[in-house]
Design a protein around this nucleic acid. Sequence first.
DNA 1: TTGTAGGCGTTATCAG
DNA 2: CTGATAACGCCTACAA
Lengths: 342, 342
Amino acid sequence: MPVTMRDVARRAGVSVKTVSNVVNEFPHVSPATRDRVLAAISDLGYQMNFSARNLSLGRTGMITLAVPEMRLPYFAELADEVIVAAAERGYTVLVERTGGVRDRELEALTSDRRRMTDGLIFSPLGLRPADAHRLEVDYPLVLLGERALHGSVHHVAMGNVAGARAATEHLLQRGRRRIAVIGSYDERGAGAGSLRTQGFTGALADAGIEHDPRRTGEALEWTRTTGAEAMRRVLDSGVEVDAVYGLNDVLALGAMRVLFERGLRVPEDVAVAGFDDIEDGRFSAPSLTTVQPGRDEIARTAVWLLVDRITRGLSAGSNGRELVVAPELMVRESTGGETLPA
Amino acid sequence: MPVTMRDVARRAGVSVKTVSNVVNEFPHVSPATRDRVLAAISDLGYQMNFSARNLSLGRTGMITLAVPEMRLPYFAELADEVIVAAAERGYTVLVERTGGVRDRELEALTSDRRRMTDGLIFSPLGLRPADAHRLEVDYPLVLLGERALHGSVHHVAMGNVAGARAATEHLLQRGRRRIAVIGSYDERGAGAGSLRTQGFTGALADAGIEHDPRRTGEALEWTRTTGAEAMRRVLDSGVEVDAVYGLNDVLALGAMRVLFERGLRVPEDVAVAGFDDIEDGRFSAPSLTTVQPGRDEIARTAVWLLVDRITRGLSAGSNGRELVVAPELMVRESTGGETLPA
DNA sequence: TTGTAGGCGTTATCAG
DNA sequence: CTGATAACGCCTACAA
């Protein structure tokens, strides 16, 4: 039923190989035969069978992007960038959803489905340092966003510590001294949480400020809901707060929502800052001061590194490099910055 | 270099067919040989070659989801649901980004890359009614979110008209009479824009209210930015406004941002409502009244319909059905609803 | 219950 | 520049 190259060849009165040459824009084909073949292709409505081509070539032209969830704005925006960058390199993107759960992340690394594509861009959330060796897989892999896990695996990291430190220092410069932090981390975790917390506490320490543990609002999952809950717990503890640092933007936005409910003004009563620079924060009221981690550069770099490894036939373990993308502080209204004309 | 079934067979001292039987959990295999095969598989680290299997089977176990952009929260959340539903049916999801641009949408429908998967779930934005016949492709296709385009193609629609009408009626019930609408549409478009506008104007007409065209804020793209710009234009026209209906939530949020800038209180001075029920709206300050279109049901239904068509070998054109998912009005603070405990 | 032969549609090799 | 022919790795008959 489906039209094959053989059919096209017969129709055009040439061999299968010639059809293949035409389809793949192989240089040495005489214009005459080429036209004949193209005519046959359009007459018959021929379309390439990718499974066959992939089998023959030993590659698929697809890569997998494994992320926690699309509904987390950071990953949605990341996915957009990855898809665009991949398209530029002639690749198409299969999205795998891990939920940020360790077991599912390990599975994404080893499952059969992984074999459907040529390589993996992987943004883990639940993996622990002890899992590092699991990353030394025998196919092309590029890791995203983390540093603690690296081992010898290729990865593109963001400046978690530096970014959080810059944001915290900014709050200090605004005269805030009772800064709450929203969104804690699993101590065994290797994720952004612990790194950003390092940046936060480091900045406080440098300023000679002691952090009251009641000002820590834990949130294992990073969503608006958990951010709001954590903020409530901090406020309910009775401790005074004149600023809030959310370890990412959705946490900060959830916290800001609670401040609003409690009648606290931002930034007059409480200044707020986040991390990620998602679009929501640019349009919240007030707009959110945050750290732009260089998402587009991260995505682009990851794709290029991966494609490079694919074409050169390198697996994850060999010769891994670390690239760190520099973060940038974006000062907005929530810390008393300028009102941006959106 | 790669381990094949042949290698496993040799190692286990059986035939290739037996290995295949074990791998595919074919019932009639003696436990003894099965164990032997499994041992060989794990010894050798065998992993199935999907290209070969796909070629043989004539199917890939992948479906394509074509959407405008992931960074639009509605589509991000939709993608999550689609990925989960597809996984339940044993499928994996390739994401195609159309940008909502007509040309790219047409290309997604016909390009070679489309052939890499077994079917397509397609959410068009830029197509016009005149393009309807282009949807009668010869592979399994399920259309999302639109009604005007249907033709004879299978599709899952949301209640655009009913939802927008319900939201508008709600604003009227709150005593608002000078309602602006944000987010216009291409008149030739077949998209949600025209349908939701119908719901909006229908409700006004039923209430005997004439719509001042200065209260229409056009926005061809639906983003916070364009919503904010449209809102500014409406306000700058000098026309009075006591409510705003955003044709989707990001438009409404962008508009709300401008109201905030101008010192207008929501909902006291201006009530605001949207469409989509994205997570942002539940945590904005104030929280956003909106229409929940039944996103999870839409995604699940679309996947099941598509898989059904794939397994039954039906192409797009034949025997298309339309399923409409009922919308639900979510009343929140932006129209004076209860303060939700987030 | 297990093995053998043939084909899935393309691409690569190597003559002509 | 073009055409046979043999892989690519797996699956479905059909046989044993």
